[in-house]
């Protein structure tokens, strides 16, 4: 996983609650057996007016010029500003892959759905939770004439804007360290191999009806 460093970028405001992962990346793109190739179809049903299919390029599509991510002023945005319960619904990690491949490094919202939130950390996308009042203020600034550019510093847990605004944010220290170092989750767990093996010996002795009890590991 790529390590997260400080990000400075334009904020794109997506002003609706309960944005589900079916909207972030629709089902027809989940047929891929790869981890890449999803960025062009981020928010496909909102960015385009026609029905998309795998293999179509954005220039073959009918663009929805009213959708916020298509407005010229938000091109190149790296921070997505969202409302409550962002990423609800399907567990598809493709939603995180699509957001990152499109160019987002940070999503800021008042709350996130559990599975999406968890998937962010496996890929180095930074989800930041802020108070609703602060989010409301960020929406006002991001939609104002000047727009909003933010610098997000995960190590210092600090968000700053050129005109001097400063917002601190809470962050789980364990998850922060993993993001900052880009640690391999599987490698970390495999470092506990002896404990897992000791656990499962007892576990299968206690519950010999479990499917894994049939197997002698080499």
């Amino acid at each position: 996983m790529k390590a997260f460093s400080t990000v400075t970028g334009l904020v794109a405001p997506l002003d609706r609650a309960n944005v589900d992962t079916d909207q972030i990346i629709p089902k027809q793109y989940l047929k891929s057996i790869h981890r890449t190739g999803f960025g062009d179809n981020l928010f496909d049903g909102w960015r385009f007016l026609d029905e998309g299919a795998p293999g179509m390029t954005p220039n073959e599509r009918r663009i929805n010029h009213d959708f916020v991510l298509n407005l010229p002023r938000y091109q190149g945005a790296r921070v997505l500003l969202a409302r409550d319960n962002f990423g609800c619904g399907s567990s598809r990690e493709h939603a995180v892959w699509a957001l990152m491949e499109f160019g987002f490094d940070v999503v800021i919202a008042p709350s996130f759905a559990d599975i999406f939130y968890n998937n962010c950390f496996k890929n180095g996308l930074l989800p930041i939770v802020l108070e609703k009042e602060i989010i409301d203020d960020l929406f006002r600034r991001a939609t104002s004439e000047d727009g909003l550019e933010l610098t997000v510093d995960l190590v210092a847990q600090r968000i700053t804007a050129p005109e001097g605004m400063l917002i601190g944010f809470e962050f789980d220290p364990v998850r922060k360290e993993k993001l900052v170092k880009g640690l391999d989750d599987i490698g970390m767990t495999l470092a506990e191999r002896a404990r897992i093996e000791a656990f499962e010996a007892k576990h299968y002795a206690r519950m010999p009806w479990l499917p894994g009890a049939r197997e002698k590991r080499s």
Binding site: V174, T189, F199
Partner: peptide, 25 residues
């Protein structure tokens, strides 16, 4: 199982169900 070095709990999983969409990667 216990707590990993970074403080996360390790939960032993008895059964993983797999289907074609989320398993290839």
């Amino acid at each position: 199982v216990g707590t990993r070095g970074d403080g996360e709990s390790l939960l032993y999983i008895d059964l993983q169900l797999l289907h074609e969409v989320t398993s290839p990667q």
